[in-house]
Design a protein around this nucleic acid. Sequence first.
DNA 1: CAGCATCCATTCAGATACTG
DNA 2: CAGTATCTGAATGGATGCTG
Lengths: 125, 125
Amino acid sequence: MTHQTVGHRHTTSPGLPDDPRAAVTVPTPSCPVEITLAALRGRWTTLVIRELLQGGRTFTELRQALPALSDKVLSDRLAQLAEAGVVDRRREPGWPSRTHYGLTPHGRRLGPVLQALWDWGARPS
Amino acid sequence: MTHQTVGHRHTTSPGLPDDPRAAVTVPTPSCPVEITLAALRGRWTTLVIRELLQGGRTFTELRQALPALSDKVLSDRLAQLAEAGVVDRRREPGWPSRTHYGLTPHGRRLGPVLQALWDWGARPS
DNA sequence: CAGCATCCATTCAGATACTG
DNA sequence: CAGTATCTGAATGGATGCTG
């Protein structure tokens, strides 16, 4: 996100930092807010993160926790989250094959972000 | 967002509140996290909010601040944000007609949410 | 088991053109 | 000025079926 880079920041755009990326006039992938929203984008994404905040899970365990989520979309989400540096994928050797997913330290830091989203949505307007 | 409702909450899902809505297994519109993400959803939305965090704006002022944003999408976004209780629309009488948009108190509370999104995205993974 | 390939329906953004 | 109506192309989600 963003705001003007001059003047009395805290009076015009409370809480937003003074950063060049804060002055864009077009949605820009390098904007920190866009980066975070891209990581959270898509149906099911926050539910997958919620599961992983409770501890590591295998592909099948995630499917069991979220039965209505198709494996195609689960696969998409995990790839997206791995790409964003949120989850760590560990393919365990042997048969049947098993892949273990867990949050990275960066992923665990999404906890407060989800909390902020929860807090706003939980409060009556 | 959500997490289990039993056990040692803060060790399994740090920061997420103990609420029935925290146990859903399907993306649910009444989940507070979904509510917030729905308000922020769509290209340009956070940039429009950024503009309004700096003060009220008319339709034309918003278009000037975000020149690459088409008036159709701007109109869509403002309707979505009004629906979400984020912005307040005041049609000023007279000619030429003029509509003034400003954040509601609830909308202003998105400041910390955007800050949390910024902070996570600004931090190296 | 994990997960990709394919296909289909729906949603969304942007462009263009038109009104109160 | 401040929108709405319509259309097109792109992206997304879900279902089904197939492999390492």
